[in-house]
Design a protein around this nucleic acid. Structure first.
Length: 562
RNA sequence: GGCCCGUUGGUCAAGCGGCUAAGACACCGCCCUUUCACGGCGGUAACGGGAGUUCGAUUCUCCCACGGGUCACCA
């Protein structure tokens, strides 16, 4: 039997604080009944991806909907993987998706990350003394012990050392080796500890696991429901040799001290839940509520679902920006995936912010869903269709200035002109839905600009060139931009009728053989000349915006080319 | 391989012992319409398999299959 008190002093001579000092330094939060405290706790190793935005949106909604607190904690416990500037990027990206933190690591006025709130520091690398205080206590209580086996030695003992080779692992042998090794580790004597310490050998602190995997813990996850998980019997690492905690230990200590009520994270954490529960128990902490959110999936080349990973299209939130999706649309899509009754609510409340939606944990799906660009596009079209022409103009312009500079400059050169274009068919109960992304704008309305205008579509062979020419000439002869739309259209009808193309669609449908064609054909002749395309928004509006000179010039060009 | 989670149409999903098994996206057709877009109407399409429990199972239980996740001094 080791003298734990002595061991604790040997291991952590510099740690003088006690757990109660920490409890005093991090007082319980005083929040109204039912208020939830949630957090986003990323490791600063890269960008925010869709799979990360997902649970974070849940955390944000739950906190703010309940009058609680959402805070950001940076889990930079692995210096090797840290990417400079990643944390700043994460915060900014999240902000564009409506995720604002009340507390934690925030970007200060100087553009650098600073702490806001009294539960800091919010960077785990700065909290070593806090973790070590609890670590020391665990040693005192005989719940943790030092392990001087180096990483290299460990690797030799294990048949797995690299993720890539995991498929070739002999799991049986692995488990046995592990077991034996763990038992041996536990036999460490005070003499060995002193000897190693004297040599300056590094150590990790391991938990002394008391679990029996044959026994199950009953547990209720707020989204997964009831489940049974085997108790933990693995002496996992609490403190790495640099004195910095692993995720598990930091999670328990921080979420306790910072008063997290709901731990919201991806379901990939489910397998280590037993460790966390054990840790909370060892430390005498009340366990928070857990919500393990199903993963977003993608289809691999074999048609199987796979977790959406960083490299996949649609994973990096910056992809959406680049592709021209507006954040509102992405949020909207996320909400439809998160709560099955969201779309229904949206239909009844078309003008409200998604933040007014009563988010319901019970309406969350427990199985992973496939990312669907079709659906995103549809949602996005709806979102954009309700925006004002001013909004759309500004948003398309600023997007284009960044990702399609020439086009952006065109739009910016005459904002009023651009705005008139985007105003076509906007407003009213049945707005046009042409744009799913800002990138769609160019193909939709680029033809308005002579710099971009091109004959994308051509007349079908079946149409008599002479008729086309006659239509265009006839149209030009009577064209007057100041005509109202009825007069304007009547003139077109007259031109067509003279050529044997009936203006009466009903008549035409009743007996197509009686006519050369109809008003649709005539309109098309003009449309192609003016817009270069078979399809366009309302042609009268187009001509009004284009103005007399451009309309005439384009038609004359077409006549000359026929 | 052990453990955990999951499985309703192509996708997202409602359902919570008795229903012709909702709805949305996508797809197809029709209508409206000068094209497109919008809108309207309609259509194709689903409970992974097998045992139980039950008068009756998509719904409850078990087994199997399949899919996913995880097994680090990474989070």
């Amino acid at each position: 039997m080791l003298d734990y008190q002595k061991l604790a002093e040997l291991l952590f001579p510099h740690v003088t604080a006690l757990p109660e000092d920490m409890e005093a330094a991090f007082p319980k939060r005083e929040l109204p009944e039912g208020a939830k405290v949630t957090r986003f706790a990323p490791s600063p190793t890269g960008f925010v991806h869709f799979g990360g935005l997902f649970p974070t949106t849940v955390a944000e909604r739950l906190a703010h909907q309940s009058g609680g607190v959402l805070y950001l904690r940076i889990e930079d416990t692995d210096a090797k993987r840290e990417v400079p500037g990643a944390a700043e990027g994460l915060i900014k990206t999240l902000a564009t998706y409506g995720i604002e933190f009340d507390e934690g690591a925030v970007i200060g006025e100087d553009g650098c990350i600073c702490d806001k709130g009294i539960y800091g520091p919010y960077k785990q690398s700065l909290r070593a003394n806090i973790y070590q205080t609890y670590a020391k206590q665990l040693v005192r209580e005989g719940k943790a012990y030092p392990c001087f086996t180096t990483e290299e030695e460990l690797e030799e003992l294990h048949s797995i050392d690299k993720k890539a080779e995991i498929k070739n692992t002999d799991w049986q042998a692995e488990a046995e080796a592990r077991r034996a090794e763990m038992l041996a580790r536990r036999q460490i004597t005070m003499e060995e500890v002193e000897e190693n310490l004297a040599k300056g050998n590094p150590f990790v602190l391991r938990i002394l696991a008391d679990g029996d995997p044959e026994k199950k813990i009953k547990f209720t996850d707020l989204v997964k429901g009831n489940m049974e998980i085997p108790e933990n019997d693995e002496d996992f690492v609490l403190l790495k040799s640099d004195g910095i905690p692993t995720y598990h230990f930091a999670h328990a200590v921080d979420d306790h001290l910072m008063g997290t009520t709901h731990v919201i994270r991806g379901e990939e954490w489910l397998p280590s839940l037993a460790k966390h529960l054990q840790l909370f128990r060892y430390l005498g902490f009340k366990t928070p509520k857990y919500m393990h959110i199903a993963q977003i999936m993608r289809l691999d080349e074999n048609g199987n679902k796979k977790k959406l990973s960083k490299r996949d299209m649609g994973a990096n939130m910056d992809d959406y920006t680049r592709l021209g999706y507006c954040p509102e649309a992405v949020c909207e899509y996320v909400m439809t995936l998160l709560n099955s009754n969201y779309e229904e609510w949206r239909m009844q409340n078309p003008d409200k912010s998604y933040k007014d939606f009563p988010f319901n944990i019970k309406k969350m799906s427990s199985s992973g869903c496939l990312f669907d660009f079709n659906k995103l596009n549809d949602v996005s079209k709806n979102v954009i269709s309700t925006m004002s022409a001013d909004d759309v103009t500004d948003k398309v312009t600023s997007w284009a200035l960044k990702f399609d500079e020439d086009f952006g400059k065109l739009l910016a050169s005459d904002r009023e002109f651009a705005k008139q274009i985007f105003a076509i068919g906007r407003g009213g109960k049945k707005p046009r839905k042409d744009l799913a992304t800002w990138a769609d704008a160019k193909s939709y309305m680029g033809f308005f600009y002579d710099e971009i205008f091109a004959l994308e579509d051509s007349y079908d062979e079946k149409y008599d060139r002479a008729d086309i020419k006659a239509t265009l000439e006839g149209f030009l002869k009577s064209f007057d931009v100041s005509d109202d739309s009825n007069v304007w259209f009547d003139k077109i009808k007259a031109v067509g009728e003279a050529l044997g193309y009936t203006p009466n669609m009903k008549e035409y449908k009743a007996d197509p053989t009686a006519f050369k064609g109809n008003i649709a054909d005539i309109s098309m002749f003009i449309r192609v000349a003016v817009t270069g395309k078979l399809n366009s928004p309302d042609m009268y509006s187009v001509m009004q915006i284009l103005g007399r000179d451009r309309v005439v010039a384009r038609i004359e060009n077409m006549i000359n080319s026929l």
